[in-house]
Design a protein around this nucleic acid. Structure first.
Length: 768
RNA sequence: GCACUCGUGGCGGAACUGGUAUACGCGCAGUCUUGAGGAGGCUGUGCCGAAAGGCGUGAGAGUUCAAGUCUCUCCGAGUGCACCA
């Protein structure tokens, strides 16, 4: 027997799988479809790191398992290559983003192929490809036609380092970004933790008033909330979305000031109106001051509480957010801690009065207010003043206003320019290119200007899953028949960090396309599994920390199968395992032992009941663990089986090794294929073979070990024929005769005997 | 501050509806093979104790014949949200 040559064998099967198209299903006629999707990566210059290996292998293992369950598995992969992340790198190395993306995507493909993943390479996509972004632009036009896209001057978040606006969702606390807060010059500053920074670079965001494009996601707030009920996602991710939508129901109540002005407040507690003692209004100046304490200033005005006419002082404060509700609240110290804190600080009245439910009705009947629902969710800001993104397909005509580019003229090609660096002027680099923006109005034919902003990356990724089955389709973003057959996605595998960004946008876009009758479903991912993030030396892998692990060296030294087994063995998929070198050598030893085991002489004899029982137990355990993404314990139980077979070499038969190869196949696809075809002489391919069944009746053993307790403490173990295990009298009788137990029962009165069939006997005796 | 999740050997982690805590692996120790190294085989490995036995799942209490698992309080970590009215 030769040593297992992973380099030769892995390459051999990767080529054979490709040639035989075993991972390229016929999408037009597939029965029992299973769309198994992993969130596509953005192709960074460094290539895949070990965290990608962990996540993508987790997805691939499940896809292979489903294929062996008889499903027709479609498992595509692509690249999220448009957007700031790719552009920033291109700027850094001073190379055209088109060329950078070409190189990095090629590198990613090589790496993913080397891992042996069963991707359908016939259906890849790259979001920066005109054949793709043509349809991203089409999506924009559909949004426009549906009245869901608009341009408006707004106070928006602006990152001075990325020199572009950001969506609300991309503005986070420094800890959420995993970065030290930086000022506009890139210097790390020590700011209060409430400061908000750019998710991508950690720079403190500024507020600017700019004309920007928005998608009206707020119109879908209720539906996004309601249909969370019907999808199989973890409670955490659903909660994150729910919080982000932030629905709160209350009332708008109008207060008149003594000089006749009107102040409208939003409150969820109109029943406490009778205990309100002041009005607090938002003030930009106060709000933007960095103060952890509540601060305010009396405006000199008084508002009249509409029911009683009480005079309530009006204060400007920093603790009322300008952008939320009406930017004004009624201060009710008795029922709100924050109002209490403020009232105490500035010696305002505190009135103790019980809430009165009737006030809801009274206020609205007397016309002082009405029911109102507020949301935290804002419209999605989709324009970016950058170069590397899909141009927004709109034309501004002095006569006709905003006019959409006709669908037949798509794509609006992103021109090759050399001055693609952002300048931070509030306009994107395309605004310096007349040849791009000087156009005729599609409606009236007069001189007009093209929009020079491009779309946010998240627009690209909000619909990519619809494109995969139809990639290559020339006349539509997705083919109707194929889409009907293959969507929605059966299992979406990805990181929880996308809980409110990508996953919310995708749900929104799907609902819009459903309403426009392009789709027959309104949730894109009925099942989403959030995997954990891989850790190295106690921290999340990140380039800035310098703890990124490149998998290539491990693939080369130990082979893809060893690396796959190793990362899957680290812990359950939803945990965040710590990568370390020492363990992978151990997995290399396991693979070598497997190879030896498969190559040993076989017996024709019937294996012992013990071995058969173990095999059936392991198949059951592995099967169950697969569905729960607990690959670590699945592998552990395979190891137990291997340990037992090594200790019982004379009982290793062909059926046993066939079952072992089959349950190994999702984890170690190359080794499994090699032994299946070349050693065990089975027909190619193991990856199309059926998952083994287990027989519960064969899982029983001849003997059962029962524990005997006295007062809850284990005093003896008893090995009994399994036929006795469920008979209380017999077991108790034997237990009482056991010499160890005799000692503990001597001279004591048994108060109670607890019997658990097949497990234990507990004698409860008098103490002392 | 609010919500959720989680604290188990030297390490990664097991433990089904409460029923042998530490499976599986790493590491470590001893030992065999080898001229040496590498690699491999075997044995051991929670703590205290010579043993009998005792003690052990962040701390403390409770429920139970029996608690890592259920309940309460506290401590610690992580994640999400955050002056959202």
């Amino acid at each position: 027997m030769d040593k297992y040559d992973h380099k030769k064998i892995e390459k051999k099967w990767q080529e054979k799988w490709e040639k035989e198209k075993i991972y390229f299903p016929d999408l037009s006629g597939a029965e029992g479809k299973y769309y198994n999707l992993w969130m596509f990566p953005y192709p960074s210059a460094e290539g895949l790191h070990a965290g990608h290996v962990f996540a993508s292998t987790g997805s691939d293992v499940f896809g292979r398992f489903m294929r062996m369950q008889g499903k027709t598995v479609f498992q595509p992969i692509g690249y999220d290559s448009f957007g700031i992340h790719s552009e920033n790198y291109a700027i850094k190395i001073g190379e055209d983003p088109h060329r950078v993306v070409k190189r990095t995507t090629k590198h990613y493909e090589e790496q993913m192929r080397s891992l042996g993943h069963g991707y359908d390479w016939m259906h890849t996509l790259t979001t920066s490809d005109p054949d793709y972004y043509r349809w991203t632009q089409w999506l924009f036009l559909k949004m426009w036609q549906a009245g869901l896209a608009y341009k408006k001057k707004a106070t928006v978040n602006f990152c001075p380092s990325c020199k572009t606006v950001l969506a609300d969702e991309q503005v986070v606390t420094p800890s959420a970004a995993g970065k030290e807060p930086k000022n506009a010059r890139g210097e790390v500053v020590d700011e209060t933790p409430e400061i908000k920074v750019c998710e991508r670079c950690g720079t403190i965001v500024e507020k600017r008033d700019l004309d920007q494009w928005f998608f009206k996601i707020t119109k879908y707030a209720d539906r996004l909330l309601e249909s969370l009920e019907k999808i199989d996602w973890s409670a955490r991710v659903k909660l994150a979305q729910k919080n982000w939508i932030g629905k709160s129901q209350g009332m708008l109540i109008r207060f008149k000031t003594e000089d006749g002005e009107e102040i409208e407040v939003f409150t969820t507690r109109p029943d406490t109106l009778n205990a309100a003692t002041f009005i607090a209004i938002a003030d930009e100046d106060f709000y933007n001051r960095e103060s952890s304490e509540k601060i305010g200033e009396f405006t000199g005005k008084y508002a009249l509480e509409p029911l009683s006419g009480r005079r309530l002082p009006v204060w400007k404060t920093n603790y009322v957010a300008p952008g939320y509700g009406t930017g004004a609240i009624m201060g009710v110290p008795a029922h709100d801690e924050r109002d209490m804190e403020f009232a105490e600080k500035y010696h305002l009245d505190i009135v103790q009065k019980d809430p009165d439910k009737n006030l809801w009705q009274e206020i609205s009947e007397k016309g002082f207010g009405k029911k109102h629902t507020n949301y935290h969710l804002r419209d999605w800001l989709v324009s970016r003043q950058r170069y590397w993104g899909a141009p927004i397909p709109m034309v501004d005509c002095p006569k006709c206003g905003w006019v959409p580019v006709p669908e037949k003229d798509l794509p609006v090609i992103l021109p090759n320019i050399s001055d693609y660096k952002p300048e931070g002027t509030g306009k994107g680099p395309l605004a310096n290119h007349k040849e791009f923006y000087q156009v005729k109005c599609p409606k009236c034919g007069g001189d007009a200007t093209r929009e020079t902003d491009v779309m946010d990356t998240f627009v690209d990724s909000s619909w990519y899953f619809l494109r995969y089955p139809s990639s290559g389709e020339k006349d539509a973003p997705f083919d109707e028949g194929v889409t009907k057959k293959w969507l929605p996605v059966d299992l979406y595998f990805g990181g929880a960090e996308h809980s409110v960004l990508h996953l919310m946008y995708s749900r929104f876009v799907t609902k819009v396309l459903f309403d426009l009758k392009f789709l027959g479903f309104d949730e894109p991912f009925p099942k989403f599994f959030a995997h954990g993030l891989m850790i190295k030396d106690g921290f999340k892998m990140s380039k800035s920390r310098g703890n990124v692990v490149n998998p290539d060296q491990y693939v080369s030294k130990f082979g893809a199968d060893t690396l796959r087994l190793y990362v899957m063995f680290l812990g359950p998929m939803d945990a965040s395992p710590d990568f370390r070198d020492s363990g992978i050598e151990g997995m290399g030893r396991f693979v070598a032992r497997l190879w030896k085991l498969f190559n040993q002489p076989l017996t024709d004899a019937q294996p012992s009941k013990e071995v058969v029982s173990k095999l059936n137990q392991v198949i059951k355990k592995v099967t169950e663990d697969m569905y729960n993404f607990k690959y670590n314990t699945a592998i552990a139980s395979i190891m137990e089986l291997v340990n037992m077979l090594e200790d019982n070499k004379n009982q290793v038969s062909l059926p046993i090794l066939k079952s072992l190869a089959l349950i190994l196949a999702p984890f170690a696809p190359h080794l499994a294929e090699e032994v299946w075809v070349e050693v065990l002489g089975q027909p190619f391919s193991i990856h199309k073979a059926s998952w083994p069944e287990y027989d519960s009746s064969l899982m029983q053993k001849d003997t059962v070990t029962m524990i005997i307790q006295v007062n809850g403490k284990i005093r003896a173990t008893l090995s009994l024929g399994s036929e006795y295990a469920n008979t209380q009298e017999k077991v108790v009788e034997i237990a009482k005769k056991d010499e160890k137990i005799v000692k503990w029962l001597e001279g004591k009165k048994i108060k109670k005997t607890v019997f658990v069939p097949g497990r234990l006997v507990n004698f409860v005796v008098e103490e002392g």
